[in-house]
Computed example of a mutant assay.
Amino acid sequence: MDGRTKDATGGRMDAATEAFVAHRNLLFTVAYEMLGSAADAEDVLQETWLRWTGVDLEGVREPRAYLVRTTTRQALTRLRTLRRRKESYVGPWLPEPLLTAPDVAEDVELAESLSMAMLLVLETLAPTERAVFVLREVFDLEYGEIAQAVGKNPDAVRQIAHRARKHVAARRPRDTASPSDTRAALRAFQRAVETGDLQGLLDVLAPDVVLLTDGGGVVRAALAPVVGAGKVADLLGRLSGAVSLHPTRVNGHPALVVSRGGEIDTVVATRIDDGRVTGLYAVRNPEKLSRMTQETLLHR
């Protein structure tokens, strides 16, 4: 063997390309968990690739660890830029939804970390805290490895991890609904919206339900959270007959795609507790809907 293998088109992949391709889905997942944006995660992967091509592979003992460190550093830099950008974002900011395969849901820990509700909790962490939490709690990296990725010593990383876990635990979604309860609540919610059944909506919505709509200033959306079953039901009840709803799986969880005129209009992720909808996350910004036509491969 000459250290080179054939790619899918019958060409040759060198060792650097082979290693990057082997870990690409993992690297994308790390970047997306840190950024909540597929577009920015792809940019981070491009930057990681450019740096990887300049590395002397003979000096790299563990390509996976090296690539994860590089991706983390690039994501941290991008995350600080994103935080400034979000300060001027029009209306609520929501993560970019990803159409995911059933196998993501089978990895319970990964699916939990990818939920809209959880990603919004991660948004409340400082950049380094988020990186440490993601690498430790989601990807189970050792403290020494994380220390190299974030530029801290292992003892400092342990303290950051403890602080981040405490912060997340206080805000973590309760996740008390079984998969069957979740599916049943989502079906009831879909039927009520499609038929304009106000009482049906009030039955499935929790009294303190919160609806967040992300239009990014590009399309019409509520500029502040809509709180309370009555207000949310009144708003959703107006959609009857104007749109069609289709169940799908977003970020490893059941969700709905709202179509208007045959085009995707909105992606609605839900948070369901005790059989009732407690959170609705409606992404309408067209720039965030490009990942809904093809499944995104995620891995840890």
Rank of each mutant, 00 (worst) to 15 (best):
D2V: 06
G10F: 09
G11S: 14
R12C: 04
M13N: 07
A16S: 13
E18L: 06
A19W: 00
A19H: 07
R24M: 07
N25T: 08
N25A: 15
F28A: 03
Y32W: 09
G36W: 01
D40M: 09
A41S: 15
A41Y: 02
E42K: 15
E42Q: 11
V44P: 00
V44K: 00
L45W: 01
E47A: 13
W49L: 07
W49R: 05
T53W: 09
G54S: 11
V60I: 14
P63D: 08
R64S: 09
Y66L: 02
L67R: 01
V68H: 00
T71V: 13
R73N: 05
R73Q: 13
R73D: 06
R73Y: 08
Q74V: 10
T77Q: 14
R78Q: 12
T81W: 10
K86S: 13
Y89E: 06
G91C: 08
P95S: 12
P95M: 09
P97L: 08
E109S: 15
L110D: 01
L110F: 08
A111I: 05
A111K: 03
L114S: 04
L122Y: 10
A126F: 04
V132H: 02
V132Y: 00
V132A: 00
L135T: 01
R136S: 10
E137W: 05
E137C: 06
F139W: 07
Y143H: 11
Y143T: 08
A149W: 00
G151Q: 04
N153C: 04
D155F: 14
D155T: 14
D155R: 10
I160H: 00
R165M: 11
K166Q: 13
A169D: 12
A170H: 10
A170S: 13
R172C: 14
R174F: 08
D175G: 10
D175M: 13
T176I: 13
S178H: 15
S178N: 15
P179H: 12
D181P: 02
D181H: 15
D181L: 11
F189G: 00
E194K: 06
T195D: 11
G200Y: 04
G200R: 05
A206C: 11
A206E: 13
D208V: 14
D208K: 10
L211D: 00
D214E: 14
G215H: 05
G216I: 12
G216K: 08
V218C: 11
V219C: 07
V219Q: 09
A224P: 00
V227S: 12
G228H: 05
K231S: 11
K231Q: 15
K231E: 07
V232K: 00
D234N: 09
D234C: 03
R238P: 01
S240A: 12
V243D: 06
S244C: 05
S244T: 15
P247R: 14
P247Q: 12
T248Q: 07
N251P: 05
N251D: 15
A255Q: 03
S259C: 14
R260I: 08
D265Y: 12
V268S: 04
A269W: 01
T270Q: 06
R271G: 13
I272H: 06
D273H: 11
D273S: 10
G275F: 06
R276N: 07
V277S: 02
V277E: 02
T278Q: 08
Y281A: 03
V283E: 00
N285G: 06
P286H: 06
E287N: 11
S290T: 13
S290V: 11
